[in-house]
Structures are given as C-alpha cells and as structure tokens.
Design a protein around this nucleic acid. Structure first.
Lengths: 347, 347
DNA sequence: CTGAAAGCGCTTACAG
DNA sequence: CTGAAAGCGCTTACAG
C-alpha cells in the first residue's frame, strides 16, 4: 500500500508538502498542489488514519456503548447517533453491553484504549468506577437515555413522567383498577424512574401499587414472560400490565397467550418504547414513544461540544403516549393506520 | 494519561522491558516483571492501541458492513459477529449502509483507512469497484449473507431454495393458486436468488408467476407496502404474498390491513427471515428462518482464517420453513408456543 | 535478561 | 511556498 513517501517521490516534493495538500493547508503553490493531487490519484493513495491519529492525538471516532443491540430502541438510537456523527466528521464504534456489566466494562476499556475522542453511554450499570475514572481523566463523555447518578456528565434523555401519567389515566378510564408493572433493573435509571413515575401517578389518583404488582425484570423478553406468569398465578391477578420496555412486553404477551388469556379482554398490556411492530401485534400495543432520533442526534452534538472543551447542558425531551388497542380502547377514529410504519428519515 | 515512559521510570527499567512484560514476552526476570506490574497498577497505565497498531501493523479490529441496522436480521447477525470476534480477540466496527451504495462505499473506505485487519460485508450493491480494489490490494474480506458475483472472496450464507420450495408446497396445499412475491433489489444476491427460487419452485409445480405478481421492493417496509397496494389493485389480485424480507412483510401487512382485508382470510402472507415479533403479529407469520447466529460466527472464523493467510472455503447453511398461521394453516398441534421468543444464547 | 536505538506513517513548528 | 527534522507511543531486532 502506497505511503506518503511514495506520493512525495511521485510528485517530486517533500512529504511535508504532500501532508499540507492532504490537510488543505493554504501555503502550497498551485503547481505543487496539482502534482500532489495527481500523484495521489495515480497511486490510489489513502492516508493511514492510524498514523495520523497517533500524531494528532485525535481519532475522529466516537464510542457508543448501548445496553442491547437486539432491542429496536437502541438500534434506532445507534442509527441516529451514527448519522449525526458522520455529519460532524466522526466515525462511531458501537459496543453492545448486552445488559452485562462486565461486558460494558470491556467495551469502555477497549474504546478508551483506542483513544476515541469521546464516549456516548447508555449505562447498563453504574459500573466499576471505570466511567468515573474516565471522567476524571478528562475523557469527554455524555450519557444518553440512561445515566449514572453522581457521575458529573451531561445527560440527554426522555422524560416519561407525563406520558406514564397519561397511560395511568387511560387505564383507569377504561375501568382497570389492579395495575401492575414489570420493572427494569433497579440499577438502571430507566429501570427505577419508570416504576417511580407509575407509582406516583397511581398514588396521586388514589390507587395502590402492592409489591406483588411490581415484577422485577431485566429489560429482556424472557424476564417479561416470567414476571407475567407470576402475576397470573396471583390469587388476585392484575387487570393491566405495564412493561417498562418493549422486549419485556413481548415476553409478557407470550406468557399471557400461553395461558390462553386474551389482551385486552382478560388483561390490558402497555409498553414503554414504541416500535413499528406494535402496530401489527395482536392486538396493537399501546406504548410510550420516545423521541429516539432526536435523542441520538442531540447526544452527539452535546458530545461534540464537550470534545471542543465546552460544557453543554443536559437535555430532557418529553415522551408521549400512543394509544392503540391493547388496553381495551378502540383506536382513535382519526387514525386509519394507527401509526406510520418504519419509515426512513431520508428519501 | 500515563505513557510507557512513565511506567518505565516508575519501575526503574527501560521501556523495552515494560513493553516485554506488557506483551508477555518470556525473557523478563521475575523481579523486573513484578516492578513493572506494580508500576502499571500504580499509574493505572493502559497501552495506547493506536501507537501499538502503527508499530505492529495490525489493529485487532474487524470491519462489518451491513445493509440496514434497523432490520432485526442484520442486528442479530451483528451481535453474533461481535461475539465471535471478541472471543478471537478482535473488536468490530459496524458500518450501516442503510441500503445506500454511496454510504456503503463511505464505510468501506473509512474502515480501510483505519487499517482494520479484515472486512466482513453483506453488500448492498456490487459497489464502485472499491471492494474489488481492496481484494486486489490484499485486504482479507469475506461476504456474509449477500455477496458480489465475480469478486473472489469466501462467502458464508444461507441457502433458502429448499425452504422456499417447502413454502410453495405449503401454500399450494392450502389451496392458494395465485402466488406473488415482493422481491428485494435485483442488484443484491438475496434480492434475485429468492425470486429465482420462488419462480423455480412454482414452475416445477406447474404454476406460473406472471410479471404482475413480482413486486419490486428494496428490503424496506415502505416498499413492501407499495408493492402490496399494487397487488391489491390488480384486476385479479394474488391470494398469497411472499415478502423477501421481514421489513417488506411488515409493510405489506400494513397495506393489506389498511384496505380492510384480513390475513389469511383474504390473502396469505409469508416472509423470508424470521424474527421474534412474528409470533405475536396478527396473525402469527409463517417465515423462512436463517441460521443467523451460525452464519455470523462462521463468517468471523472464515475471516480470521483469511487474516492468518489461509483460504477458507465458502459455506452455505440451510434455511428452514417455520409454519405459523398467516397462510391459513392451523399451527402444528405439537407446538403450544409456536416458536421460542427472543432468548439470549447465554445465561 | 536488559537497554539503546530504529522505525511504523504521519504532522507541524522552525528556518529559510 | 518549501523541506529537513523532530516526535506521537509503542515494538523489536541487535548487541551485550
């Protein structure tokens, strides 16, 4: 593979001059520039990004550590992140933590070793202190979606409190009274916040949330299934279940169906996170939709700010309730196709 | 951030010795090793992977270019790839081509510039010759799922011919006679192969496949919707539609529903690629399942072979038909939950 | 077993 | 405008 020396030789200039035209440095004569450009084309030369990074101390690379690539929410987030990053001239390396703290640590460490310019994290876990160390060492970091209390880093996330309250109203209006929730891991902010929001909304409306109606999940389908099975085995099972993410909703639906029960006839079901498939499940599932794409883009912009040495503020965008039929309501009359299906943001 | 020199100073040895213990070189005295280990811990030293890569000319990084991250099939593939790669000591950088040739080129160029050790591709497009150039230049490459004819590279993929024939039999047995297909882009191998397999299976069974029954899609939901709308507007619409991927099936389902028609009552629907949600759509969708995880792992192993200078053979694994209710058949009696839902492969 | 030194492929003051 | 040279943080023959 041709190196900068080959190009210099071919163009009859020094490597310094080649480097200057490569980096659009102004002080290069038109003649020299032309010869270099021709040599680059002739040799099909491509600068070695590794060498360049070592010299300039920047990799033009961002790290993104997400909790689960198989979750459509994170996949949509990752896509938006990559798009905005590309627009700003960055590549992004995704690390999939699979909701496993050790794997998360592995990825953070690897990313740091590779000297990424900045790190975007949706932490699975408060972690081993690795993140705190990185912050202290000056690595630009911003949290997206989930965050770690106590780690002083900007966070870009959705606020689901309003939407959760809307959901509770919706459920009560439809006559449900025994409302249960399948929570995410308490170690994650989204795990605890969603339960808190649900519990608070219930209390404000004079409804209790017994412990037996709080299922402990881990944001994976299998845990949703188990939690739902436990609910259904109760002497007095809930008449509505709210799953704190889409995968646990999938598992719950599976468990309910396996028991021969129907949604929403026997039990209502709703989920946090909206995904295209919810339009076509049986029945279509009422969900709380996050502004995922905006979150991803805003997080990248905030990280770019941090890299530039500025201190971007945290940002919270509202989530919203999308009513479908899984809680018993007829779909709103003005929505012939309840929700637009997966559409690209570009043509 | 501490460098190797700081460690050397702290341990009272040369950087060469530090490097040796870092790389587990045998000829280091136990005493020196101990001092270095202590210094590394004291300074919280982590070797700079960029510098190491420049020196050793290997990045221990694999590139993976997929066609669409929002497609659960590719997301599952990417996860398997990352897992196997990690087991072999590699990181993987994913590039999402979004089914756009220019984006695909952008990613392979970026990956090449970063001097990845090898490239795994599921090409969106035969491409601009970039891949052929890379092969000629000696970059280890292997194709997964899709490939480019004429580019001499090992390919790891699934063979759907048998499963497609099984599907056609299934459809005919249920009384469907006007079978249509929503194809992927003809520029992709999976786009053309699936139509060919379908057409051949029909011909062998004496059934014609009129041009009007071949919808042209692009593997995106929206194109599936449009193709289905066109089918339904035909004087004699098909009574069964086979979508060549899961996203187009989603779009088709949307279009059929919007028209007030029912599946399978009015029209049967099947898809290539099985995903967890198909169990819970209304109705559950009959699909052709690929051994996705095996494909991802096998592809990484093949790439590692190539990197090691060997020439791994291409590999083709069979896909299989998973019957559910979208074509009109009752679910097999021995399958209470038709398919296991999304389960992790690890505990 | 150990260290001094060269070198990976670039960029960038510095001098001219 | 241009080039010689230093240096980014490592690894690895080479000599001892």
């Amino acid at each position: 593979m041709a190196g900068i020396k080959d190009v210099a030789a071919e163009a009859g200039v020094s490597v310094a001059t080649v480097s200057r035209v490569l980096n659009d440095h102004p002080s290069v004569s038109p003649a020299a520039r032309a010869r270099v450009v021709a040599a680059v084309a002739a040799l099909d030369y491509r600068p070695n990004a590794v060498a360049r990074s070592l010299r300039t101390d920047q990799t033009r690379t961002l790290g993104l550590v997400i909790s689960d690539v198989l979750n459509p929410y994170f996949t949509a987030l990752a896509r938006a992140v990559e798009e905005e990053a590309r627009a700003l001239g960055y590549s992004v390396i995704i690390g999939n933590a699979d909701e496993r703290p050790e794997l998360q640590d592995h990825h953070v460490r690897t990313l740091l070793d590779r000297r990424i310019d900045g790190l975007l994290m949706s932490p699975t876990d408060p972690g081993s202190g690795l993140m705190a160390d990185a912050v202290r060492a000056g690595t630009p970091i911003v949290f997206v979606d989930r965050w770690v209390p106590g780690v002083e880093v900007p966070v870009v996330r959705a606020d689901g409190r309003g939407a959760v309250a809307d959901l509770v109203d919706h459920l009560l209006r439809l006559g449900h009274r025994r409302l249960a929730i399948i929570a995410g891991p308490a170690a994650t902010t989204t795990g605890s916040e969603r339960v808190d929001a649900f519990r608070d909304a219930l209390r404000e409306r004079g409804v209790a949330l017994p412990d037996a109606y709080i299922g402990q999940g881990d944001f994976q389908a299998e845990s949703g299934r188990r939690a739902a099975e436990r609910f259904l085995a109760l002497p007095e099972p809930p008449d509505a279940v709210f799953a704190a993410d889409n995968l646990m909703a999938l598992g719950a639906l599976d468990a309910i169906r396996a028991r021969g029960l129907s949604v929403p006839g026997d039990i209502a079901l709703a989920a946090f996170d909206d995904i295209p498939w919810f339009v076509h499940t049986d029945p279509p599932i009422t969900a709380i939709a996050q502004p995922t794409e905006e979150l991803g883009r805003a997080a990248v912009r905030a990280l770019a700010e941090r890299i530039a040495g500025r201190v971007p503020p945290s940002l919270t965008l509202p989530a919203r309730l999308v009513v479908r039929r899984s809680c018993g309501a007829p779909p709103p009359a003005d929505q012939p196709h309840p929700q637009p299906i997966a559409r690209r943001s570009d043509p």
